[in-house]
Each structure stands twice: as C-alpha cells, then as structure tokens.
Design a protein around this nucleic acid. Structure first.
Lengths: 240, 240
DNA sequence: GCTTTAAAAGTAAAAAGTACCTAAATAACT
DNA sequence: AGTTATTTAGGTACTTTTTACTTTTAAAGC
C-alpha cells in the first residue's frame, strides 16, 4: 500500500574543528538538502536496510548493533506519494569521506552549531530556529501538527533531525551513545565538548572535575592519552 | 510492498483488585491471544489508525494526544506475509467493558502480576519468563535475535509487550505516563501500587513519605480524597 | 472517648551534586 | 637546566537530594 522509506540520521565529529556533524545529501531532482534515504527491500528488515544505506553512501560496513531506531513518521502528506519513514540513528567516528552516490549531487557533513538560542542553516552550519523543547515529549503524537519545513530541508527532514537531536540530548544522563562518534575510546575533554554542544552551553560551564565525578559511572578508564601537546595528557575512557 | 499493521498495547487498572492490566484479544483463526491489531488505511496516519482501533474495540473515542509510539517491528518472518508492525501505547482509566469485535472470539483484560522473578501467563494473569532487562536498551537493534514467542501469544506480540513494559518502567523517573490509567487524578497510594508492580518490589519497599518527596516535582496537588474508609484521607494529585 | 487505620509531615544521616582550589604532567621558552 | 604556560587529574568544603526511620494528623469503628 504505502512505500516504506528508511532514513538515517548519521552523526560524526570533526576532530580538528571539534564540531558535531550530521550527514546531508543534496537531492538531484529538487536540489535541496536532506537526510540519506533508501527504500526497504523485500529481503531485509529495517535495521539491515539502514546499514545498507550507510554502506552505499559511505562505504562503511557496520554490524547490526550500530543502528538504532528513532521513530516512524506516517503523516499522509509528508511526501508526494504516501510514504512511511522509518528513521534510524547511526554514530560514526572519524568523519569518513563521502561520495554523493545515486540520486544525489552532493554529500556533506553539516556542523550542528548553537548560535545564541537558535540554530540556523547557513554557510554549511546546520541550525534550527527555535528548537522546540517539547518535540521529544510529543514526538510520538501529533506529528502532523508539528510538521514544519522551516530549514530548507526536503520533506519533513527538519522534524526528523530535531527529533533525533532531542532524543540524543534526553539520553545524555543515562546512555550517552552519541559519544560513539568519538571512536571506541575518548578523553573527558572531548566528551564535554559534545555535551556542551548538545546542552547549548559553553565548555567552561561544564566543570571538568565535576563532570568526571558525575559521569564515571558511565565510563570505564582504559589508559592515558599519548598524543603530543601542551598540558597534562588526559586519561582515556570508553563507554561502559 | 509490505502490509502495514498497527498494534496497540492498551493499559488499564483494576480499582478493586489493584492490578495493572493489558488488553488481549483471542484470534478467531488461530485461537491464540494477541494484542489488538488493525491495518493502516490510505486516509489516516498511524496515530489516527491506533485510535480508530481503540474506538472499534472499546468504543472509546480519544483525542490524538492519547496514543504514543512504541517502536516499529520489521522482521521479515514476524508474520506469515511480510508485515511491518507500527506499535502504539494507550492508557485507559476505569477498565472499560470489552466486546470481542470482528476477527476476535474473546477480549479480556490480563493482569500483569510479578511472581517471584518471573511473569507467567496463567489463569488470566499475564507474565513473562525471565523478563529481559536488556530488551529496552537493545529493542531498536537486533530485533530478530530477540524474537521469541515464549508466552503463547500470537506472532511476536510477547516481544512487543516486553518492549512496552520496559519502556514504561524506564520512563517512570521522569515521565510516568502510565499513571494515566488511574484517571485524571490519583492518590499517592495508587501511584505507589503501579510503581511497585513495574519495579517488581512490594508496596512497603516504596516508602510513602519518601515517595511523596521525590515525586512531588512530577505531580500537582489538586485536593483531598473524599471517599469513605478508615484512616486519614489521602491527597489527590494529577500529572504535571 | 478510646482504639485502630492510613496517610501526611518531620528528622537526622548518608549520598550526590556543585563551586572552587591545588597538584601533577607535559611542552615551550629563556 | 630551570622556569613558565598549559592542560588535566585530584581534592575540599558546601549545598542539595535521597534515604531510613519516627511522629503527628485525620478519619472510622466501637
């Protein structure tokens, strides 16, 4: 009856600029940016489809455990034809190189950058106007009411992206899976950078010492940083 | 391509026996119990479909805000034909009367009752064998690995039910929407009963006084109980 | 009025969170 | 080599929250 699309929100991290990234593709037909999307095949379940999409667009072959269901969007008017969007989230370290692939003219990592209270899509920085705090609470109901295409993204991909952002933020306290974008291990500094972006506060507002205390239950110490640089080398952790 | 089914996990509460209830229907064809299910129509989104199902089975007409997306199950072999299950949760007070309706031979409220470590489906009591604590964390990945039909429920409805149970339990601390089954207002005693069932501890293990202190941020006092009975009448609250 | 029951309210100790400071480890500079 | 700047680990005292337990209050039944 309806077409089944699989849409991925793929997160990564720029180690040089310390930016939180999300992957967008430029649609050949409409020349608008949107999230990577494919169609579910007869022979695969949605998780497999989501990972196939990653393989096709980024050339990375991930095990099943690396994709995580976000939500399903079913609004009648969300696409030209009736189409359900089964959305997934994926966390990739190292900001892999991109190739546009079939149906896309361009592929780019967009930086999620808080600008005062808002996020704006400008100059390669992705940002939402008045990121609605209530979306996560309401994301499962009234999707049609929340439907707004305010960011110049294709279809309802702005809504999907906000839902993803809020989900990640709400999970920060007990399951900060977003830290996977830092690779298998990470320093507390990098973790704090991610937290500061998601919580939209400056890095100094997240106290180094207190962050260590309140989060050590989530992290496991596995060694010490061995990179060159000024200052004491940080300890290296991984997610428990 | 695939059929789209809408499956509801409908929760309620028995005010006399103080039991947490879930609605199951007996399938005419297979003579097995399962969750209420319908098929998505061209003219409706999934939330509307979920509420139509409630209306058809229980005769209650709810506003859109009363259904909440649980997860989408896409395993290739989850049904005889390829069929995606978009699942929703609904909280109904007063344990409404039931009519089997089309395709069902019986409709019943089943009590979720913890028996030691396990939950067993016996004598109208619904229960899971070794309710896996990890399902919620993993529910969005590896669904096919978790697929087990261990409760005599149709298809993968046992998995759906466990996913629902774990979701509710994890949300208890910050968004105890399950308390809607108590009606618009409730006493702390009743809230504690729900918590004790979900956390699988005895009522006395949830201290009355401390429960009040730790949960007052979630509840709003709206008056005092005016029912007849021994003991001081409890205050009445509603969800903030 | 006294006893029983059930819930609200109080108290003190423990645990967790917060603001701020000191110590340690490294690089760069004189 | 010794000093300084930089960065992160670790410590301390204070505040808030949670927890275990006790007391008070408000009703019903006799």
């Amino acid at each position: 009856m309806a077409d089944i699309s699989i849409t991925n929100v793929i997160w990564s991290f720029n180690n040089k600029t310390k930016e939180l990234l999300v992957l967008l593709l430029k649609n050949s037909e409409e020349q608008m940016w949107g999230l990577p999307t494919t169609y579910l095949r007869k022979t695969e379940n949605a998780e497999e489809s989501s990972l196939r999409l990653v393989r096709e667009k980024i050339g990375v072959d991930l095990p099943l455990v690396n994709t995580e269901q976000l939500a399903t969007f079913t609004d009648i008017h969300r696409a030209k034809k009736r189409e359900l969007a089964l959305t997934y989230m994926i966390y990739l370290p190292d900001m892999p190189g991109l190739v546009p692939g079939y149906g896309a003219d361009d592929a780019q990592w967009f930086s999620i950058k808080p600008s005062s209270e808002n996020y704006l899509l400008q100059h390669g920085k992705l940002s939402f106007e008045t990121l609605d705090e209530n979306i996560d609470r309401n994301e499962f109901y009234l999707q049609s009411d929340l439907f707004k295409n305010s960011n110049g993204l294709i279809s309802d991909h702005a809504l999907i992206l906000r839902t993803a952002f809020n989900r990640i933020r709400n999970r920060l306290d007990y399951s900060p899976t977003i830290l996977r974008i830092l690779g298998p291990t990470f320093t507390l500094k990098k973790a704090r950078i991610i937290y500061s972006i998601l919580l939209r506060v400056s890095l100094t507002e997240i106290d180094n010492s207190n962050f260590r205390k309140t989060h050590k239950r989530l992290f496991l110490e596995v060694g010490t940083e061995n990179i060159k640089g000024a200052g004491r080398p940080g300890k290296v952790y991984r997610l428990k």
